[in-house]
């Protein structure tokens, strides 16, 4: 133990206390008994995937060049030339897809178990912010490929801001760094994607977990007091298993469906069918379905309802204690998103 003592001398902390805190916070974190079931224990998946996104994202920046001339070529270089480039890019791409799915499932589970019920409403709101951050991540990241589809998805995607009242044009010009999509847009999106969003995301995750830990994991309604078990080793192993499973899946997907590169972006030629990535299908469908301003308003309204749902749910609870409003909301949430996604997927 010479090394430990040597270190403690130079890094004088109260070791005993450190061990205690460590035990209290991590090793012995009380996990409610229902978390033994896999169904309830998947809240960590987005975190795991995010960790891999950070890792592969950093790796990608080693080769990626955020300039209109080189962006596509460097992505092609990564995918085709660099050893295991297709794996790293594949994990990053599939990670982004899986993360959206994982978040969606996590939210649905939370809605149905009413895990946001008082006093945990704020954590739900943080969760919604995390969702928005993730989608921003996905949108900006997709644009960086700079192929024909991603270029036009970016153009069209940013165009929707125009319809936002009052601030729309300002936001649009700010995002694009000009009136049209131009070289600035790419560097802006790049900076947002790798510089701005990661700390925001990390901070929000930290908050999310902090609030979770302060309250403790919510127990299932009607099954309170069934007891707790420590985080380590059982739940820790679960996380490890989930991690291994996810890496395997993402690697396998990268081999079976390797990331494509498509046609290089040609700003003077719009492809026939422009579509965003699938997770924007619901939004895209609504905007195509309704007049642009109405679409934007209803999206904002939907977002507000989603954000403040715990409070709304509580109001319902007081008025009609018998009705399980969260089931209605959850079913609507899943149903609307699925229908819109499938609908958009089927039409051109």
């Amino acid at each position: 133990m010479r090394v430990k003592e040597w270190l403690l001398e130079r890094f004088p902390i109260d070791y005993q206390k450190f061990v205690e805190i460590n035990e209290k916070i991590f090793i012995k974190e009380p996990i409610p008994y229902h978390m033994k079931k896999w169904f309830y224990a998947m809240g960590a998946t987005p975190l795991i995937i995010f960790a891999f996104q950070v890792l592969t994202g950093i790796l990608l920046t080693f080769y990626y060049i955020p300039s209109p001339e080189m962006a596509y070529e460097s992505v092609r270089h990564i995918t085709e030339d660099v050893r295991f480039g297709f794996l790293i890019r594949g994990i990053h791409r599939w990670g982004s897809n899986l993360m959206v799915i994982a978040l969606f499932l996590h939210m649905v589970r939370v809605i149905f178990t009413r895990a946001y019920r008082p006093p945990r409403e704020l954590n739900w709101i943080i969760g919604v912010l995390l969702l928005l951050t993730t989608l921003t991540f996905a949108f900006t990241g997709y644009s960086l490929i700079y192929n024909q589809l991603s270029y036009w998805a970016t153009t069209v995607g940013t165009n929707f801001f125009k319809a936002v009242p009052l601030v729309g044009n300002t936001v649009l010009n700010f995002l694009r760094g000009g009136e049209n999509v131009n070289p600035n847009t790419l560097t802006r999106f790049f900076t947002i994607h790798i510089g701005l969003l990661p700390p925001v995301m990390t901070f929000l995750i930290f908050l999310h977990i902090l609030v979770l830990r302060l309250h403790g994991v919510a127990e299932i309604e009607g099954h309170e007091g069934e007891g707790h078990y420590p985080f380590y080793p059982s739940h820790f192993y679960k996380v490890i298993i989930a991690t291994l499973f996810l890496v395997t899946v993402m690697s396998a997907l990268s081999v079976v469906f390797p990331p494509g590169i498509g046609e290089p972006a040609t700003p003077d030629q719009t492809p026939i069918h422009i579509k965003p990535e699938w997770y924007f299908y619901p939004v895209y469908r609504i905007l195509k379905l309704l007049p642009l301003s109405v679409g934007i308003y209803s999206l904002v309204a939907g977002l507000i309802i989603l954000t403040f749902w715990p409070f709304i749910d509580e109001l319902f609870k007081q008025k009609m204690p018998k009705v399980k409003m969260n089931y209605v909301f959850g079913t609507l949430f899943v149903g609307v998103i699925l229908i819109l996604t499938v609908w958009e997927a089927m039409v051109f």
């Binding site: 660099v82 295991f84 790293i88």
Partner: peptide, 13 residues
Amino acid sequence: TFLRDVWMYLYPD
């Protein structure tokens, strides 16, 4: 194995 792949990715070919 994973770290080897990452290394090979990073090290110039």
